[in-house]
């Protein structure tokens, strides 16, 4: 059902945890099934220096959160805003179709955090 990459990121998620002094956080929950991601950002000169996440959800939700953090670390926030849930799913060698709509919420969580950063909300 799941690709090797999904299973890898699910078993050993990267950048999981909280951040002591983030520049911004963002939380996004799927209204569909309740899966929820919380993203912590450290931004310097418009570049994502550090990123952490916490996710409640199935393996697809956790793996896509982990993959997203790997993809955007070092990106400018403008570049990070271009990231889509589909790009995250693609980087994981795909997700089962029934998982796309509810569990792939990592980019949404990231965009929420960036939006809060721009609005000066910690």
């Amino acid at each position: 059902m799941y690709s090797e990459k999904v299973l890898d990121h699910f078993s050993n998620p990267r950048n999981v945890g909280e951040m002591a002094d983030p520049d911004a956080t963002g939380e996004f929950g799927s209204s569909h099934c309740g899966d929820t991601i919380k993203v912590f950002l450290k931004v310097e000169d418009g570049v994502i220096q550090d990123i952490k996440f916490k996710t409640f959800g199935c393996a697809a939700a956790i793996a896509s959160s982990s993959m997203m953090t790997e993809m955007v670390r070092g990106m400018t926030i403008e570049e990070a805003l271009q990231l889509t849930n589909e790009m995250v799913a693609e980087a994981l060698d795909g997700l089962p179709p029934e998982k796309m709509h509810c569990s792939c919420l990592a980019a949404d969580g990231l965009h929420k955090a960036i939006s809060n950063y721009r609005d000066g909300i910690r």
Binding site: L7, S11, F56, G57, A59, A61, I62
Partner: peptide, 14 residues
Amino acid sequence: AGIEGEALLLRLDM
């Protein structure tokens, strides 16, 4: 409490 059932199932399956 606090986790999602399917994720736990997959962990047990592993």
